[in-house]
Write a protein that binds this DNA or RNA. Structure first.
Lengths: 351, 351
DNA sequence: TAAAAAAATGTGTGCGCACACAATTAATTT
DNA sequence: AAATTAATTGTGTGCGCACACATTTTTTTA
């Protein structure tokens, strides 16, 4: 290690022939500065390409950063359990800094519960919030509140563009549908029917499922395949409803647009010994992994809720603590998971 | 923001009834401490779960961290150009800290040039080094030197386990071969011959190519496929040598174990209008992307040299600047890239 | 022109830690 | 028991910055 010789505010001040206070003022635009001084300092600033020492800056402004993450109850759905895992990882990661990260959960099946959390969120007066706005309408209300209180927010999983968040973190759903189509189309053979299946417990995010299906259809547009789709909101009776469709001998494969739906369909396929039917679904839920390993599920598209959540928190901290500029959008790669590369994903720490 | 109330060394000292100096001594094991004081301090330390403020720690020990990255000349091979891009990204990322990151390149085709760099590397007296040890023998020599000088190093891309680096960053090559097999096997049809192709300019890392092939063969072990392999070290005459093999009507697909080789083979397939032959290769080189988009290449396995290099530097900095503990190995996921998910990888910032 | 107000600039302190050094106490030696 | 030496403990300074406050200069008002 050598002694540092980076340019400090002090140096800037000296070069510009003013005091550090004045430099501080032009840097942060606080207080009055004569245009003469302003100019001199700016000149030196530009000339030297001054970069503040973020370490010192953070230490100097002695604050505890408070971040709140608002997402569905992880016990209700494994997908959100993964998201929570990402938050927990973030907490660990920032444990050496003055950052306090809290989670607030709402009921995935009850939009009303989302509204209830609003008070809780605002009450804790966080410096920034990470939100999974699964309930469109209710979210907009909350976001308006946040705007009023000038609390910055990052959205993940579901976008609400008109809310102009600090950053949106998610995946291109249409494109992921196309990837699903590509994977289903890979299989040779003469079968030409593709089924797109929406299994949901709540229809609030049906828009997103439709986006995925749209991608799928777009992929097959110019090809001699027939895409049929089925919407089922009562998972208990799924079997009865799709029995006819899956017994269609022309059926090549099924695309399930929800993570939970994926293993439900796998169960059924297994029951009827229809493992030859291609199955493409979403996310690395424990149950899905089981069927992927057995070969009932052929491909999983990883939306990576864990990393989404983690990066969401990290972005907030980087922005609020280190005033780093964030990208408007952080669109995740569409990861294709197979039997053979699954473990490499599971064991990878960076993931 | 609220006032912080994290436990500081000062607090520990007070609680243990000693001075901060003593606490500092037990924390860093420097200087003598009476067993009495030692015990008291340790008790408080454990009880409170003290975590040092890394920000303050870094600022307090006023040093400039010097990191050197040693890798092949990026102008010689696009693969290494990607690695360099990762380093550059790291430089940008740490530009606000007292970290100085330098790159030293060696000739990819000349082991001797690697040795020459040794002086340069040691001469700059870095605090840590990131190395791509493509030349096994020469690398071991350098690593021994580093050990003598007590300079910690992180290896990436190629492992040398007996050198026990701070951390190794890479991919499971055998497993990536299996993934290749899986992808080749996906195609239906009656063709049953798979070709494994090694195209290299230098045979120093042939071990790694063999590992990939090993994975491929392992995948097809119990299946009615025939795997033939071809080693070619003279890329200029590749075409002549593989012409016979690719014209084999039973040929289902080709697995190319090198990134550069991938597009070379694609060129040939295109020339003979053999696009129906499956082609699986490595890495997102510009040329490979072209053929992937056209469909000549069906799958690319992304070794992600860019992120490997970047994470290598980041790990070094985190360890040396923030004394974070590193994992022994950072094994990257085996990413499957297709025409449809390619753009999602290219545009993703986090990648 | 003096006094008051406003504008501009400068100074000082603390953040939590590392590290050098000073001060104190205990153990040996003479 | 005084003088040395060793062992232990305490204190002070600086890292680069933010931010509060003090000081100086200029402008306005009386």
């Amino acid at each position: 290690m050598i002694e540092k010789k980076n340019i400090r505010i002090k140096d800037i001040a000296q070069m510009a022939g003013v005091s550090v206070g004045t430099v501080d003022r032009v840097l942060h635009g606080r207080g009055k500065v004569s245009s003469d001084a302003q100019q001199k300092v700016e000149e030196v600033l530009n000339r030297t390409g001054y970069k503040p020492n973020l370490i010192a800056r953070t230490l100097g402004s002695n604050k505890t950063l408070k971040i709140t993450a608002l997402l569905p109850d992880p016990t209700q759905d494994d997908y959100w359990a993964l998201a929570e895992a990402g938050i927990l990882q973030s907490i660990e990661e920032w444990s050496y800094y003055d950052v306090e990260i809290n989670c607030i959960f709402f009921d995935l099946y009850n939009p009303g519960s989302f509204k209830t959390t609003t008070e809780g969120v605002l009450g804790s007066k966080p410096d920034g919030i990470l939100i999974a706005p699964v309930f469109h309408h209710e979210s907009i209300e909350l976001l308006n509140q946040l705007k009023v209180h000038a609390i910055p927010y990052v959205l993940f999983n579901t976008n609400i563009p008109e809310a102009d968040p600090l950053c949106f973190i998610g995946q291109n759903l249409v494109q992921s549908g196309k990837v699903a189509g590509e994977l289903l189309g890979l299989a040779g053979g003469s079968r030409r029917t593709i089924m797109s299946l929406h299994l949901y417990e709540n229809r609030d995010n049906s828009v997103h499922l439709m986006a995925k299906e749209h991608g799928l259809r777009q992929y097959f547009q110019e090809q001699p395949y027939q895409v049929i789709s089925l919407d089922l909101s009562t998972p208990n009776e799924v079997e009865d409803h799709i029995k006819e469709a899956i017994l269609n001998p022309d059926l090549l494969g099924i695309f399930v647009t929800t993570s939970k739906g994926t293993y439900i369909v796998a169960q059924i396929l297994e029951k009827y010994s229809l493992e030859h039917i291609r199955l493409v679904g979403y996310d690395l839920l424990e149950e899905n992994l089981r069927y992927l390993r057995k070969g009932t599920i052929d491909f999983l598209i990883n939306q990576n809720p864990k990393r989404m959540a983690k990066i969401g928190v990290n972005h907030l901290v980087n922005h609020l603590l280190f005033q780093k500029t964030l990208p408007e959008k952080e669109i995740f790669p569409i990861e294709i998971i197979t039997r053979q590369n699954l473990d490499s994903y599971l064991t990878s720490r960076i993931h």
